[in-house]
Design a protein around this nucleic acid. Sequence first.
DNA 1: AAGGGTATATGCTATTAACAGATAGCTATG
DNA 2: CATAGCTATCTGTTAATAGCATATACCCTT
Lengths: 107, 107
Amino acid sequence: MYRMVEPTVLYLLATGKAQYGYELMEKAHETGLTDSEIDAGAIYRTLSALEENGYVISRWDAGTSGPARHVYEITQAGREHLAEWAVLLRRLGTSMTQFADACDNLR
Amino acid sequence: MYRMVEPTVLYLLATGKAQYGYELMEKAHETGLTDSEIDAGAIYRTLSALEENGYVISRWDAGTSGPARHVYEITQAGREHLAEWAVLLRRLGTSMTQFADACDNLR
DNA sequence: AAGGGTATATGCTATTAACAGATAGCTATG
DNA sequence: CATAGCTATCTGTTAATAGCATATACCCTT
């Protein structure tokens, strides 16, 4: 999990697969970027940072069973930011695969 | 450059493309894992850590022009460690590419 | 002798996530 | 009705990593 929390959160919000912290935490592994569960602290701090930067907006929803939820929605700027992440991650992913190939050719 | 210094150093030592810190710093971008130059401090600290863990061994070489060089050689354990990195990076790389695909399919 | 390139090393800082725990609402169970 | 457990958010602290800066020093050229 190296810097994958932010793109994971943006993606889940963009697809509507999750809307608030606790749900993001449970569904984070669905993106494939992380095998294990993402730490709750990382989720909540990432959401705060995203909101500060205008990539998401939030409201409180007390109309469900259980404690109130801080519900998030991705903004247009957030979608663009996710698209930038996608470009970066594709480049990184390609590099890593090529590096792994080169390592395998060592023996 | 997130956690790529260690595999980059091991790879360059394994292939013989570099033997000491300063040279590693100059040739680090050749692996493709990093576009820019790796920080010198990161290189030297990584080499120390690798030696502590038995992944490389070192000797001083004062027999060249210029200041003495701390020359490193990868060990068998180091090669195995690099192979583990390759497995991990292939998995990460595949995940990132798939994530990027999914993001591109959002629009 | 002065400056520049080679070479190693350490101090400090910023970022990120991991670990841990506090708070609190709601629900089911005994 | 007490209490245990799940849902939910948030913060404090620490560890790992890399970036930036600096110190030291050798050697060669001008």
